[in-house]
Design a binder for these strands. Structure first.
Lengths: 148, 148
DNA sequence: AAGATTGATGCAAATCGTTTGCATTTAACT
DNA sequence: AGTTAAATGCAAACGATTTGCATCAATCTT
């Protein structure tokens, strides 16, 4: 459903920026790709440590920030643990403003969906208010099918 | 449009809970009522200090938490400064799940709206996924009419 | 293939918003 | 007025993220 973010693309971009493809970055990327859903920095850190225990948390953060700045992941926050940043690997299958999240309060899983009505909601608001809408974040909270 | 949260109601609730109506709480409440939009704790703190410079920031937090637990305000986070908690005075004019926010990235103002389509979006998602939706948070980001 | 260059790392300390423990104050009861 | 427990002020703790800096190592040079 959601094709994995391709490591090759990242390598290419790193080099294009005059950066270096380090062992740490490779491990972090692999952890991110392998992770289902929207991991936090220390979930990634935990995976990464199993492969190379010498990797530091700040390296994980720096790598995730780099990925964010270069459009490979997007930061997300959800109302329950709103302080922990979560990283949403971007795949190009849906662009920002066109998809939303559902978070199950039982299993904490996050489900991603496209929602055509959302565009209408934005358009309606623009008309009514005179504002220009540039992006939208919709999060639904509840209990997923599996947990009911 | 948005009727102010009534101090009398709070006083009533405080007493019902066996609590005390202190001078500090009164000042904080007045600051909150006087504040347009969705202030942060230290915006409230700043207002409050002008009236009584001896009030402490932790008292502001404790009071806001109490208001939150008793349904007088709701906590909100927006993507730009996602770390700062904002306090949304609840008025009973619209209930949770039925209203959303627009945030202007120029003036940082937050505009609140009801949006009937949102209920449809939730219903559509429930049908499609089998999940039960309990609440929804929709935030639009862009430039408001005044700032264009 | 060895050396130079400079970007990335590990570590520890800093940051920022929010919370907490505790001794003291004070609102509301008697 | 005196009692008592809730609320305060203060300072210290917190948890997630960031930063400065000395060191390490990918890539470029030769």
């Amino acid at each position: 459903m959601k094709p994995a973010l391709l490591i090759n693309q990242v390598v290419q971009k790193v080099r294009a920026e005059g950066g270096r493809m380090t062992a740490q970055r490779r491990v972090i990327l692999e952890a991110l790709v392998a992770h289902p859903g929207h991991p936090t920095a220390d979930e990634i850190f935990a995976s990464v440590r199993r492969v190379d225990p010498s990797i530091n948390l700040s390296t994980v953060y720096r790598t995730l920030r780099w990925l964010e700045e270069n459009g490979f992941v997007a930061p997300r926050w959800f109302e329950d643990d709103h302080r922990r940043e979560r990283f949403d690997p971007l795949t190009g299958t849906h662009t920002s403003g066109e998809h939303f999240h559902f978070r199950c309060r039982v299993c904490n899983r996050i489900i991603e969906f496209d929602e055509p009505l959302l565009a209408e909601v934005c358009a309606a608001f623009e008309q009514r208010s005179g504002a220009r809408v540039e992006s939208a974040a919709l999060v639904l909270y509840g209990v997923c099918a599996r947990c009911r």
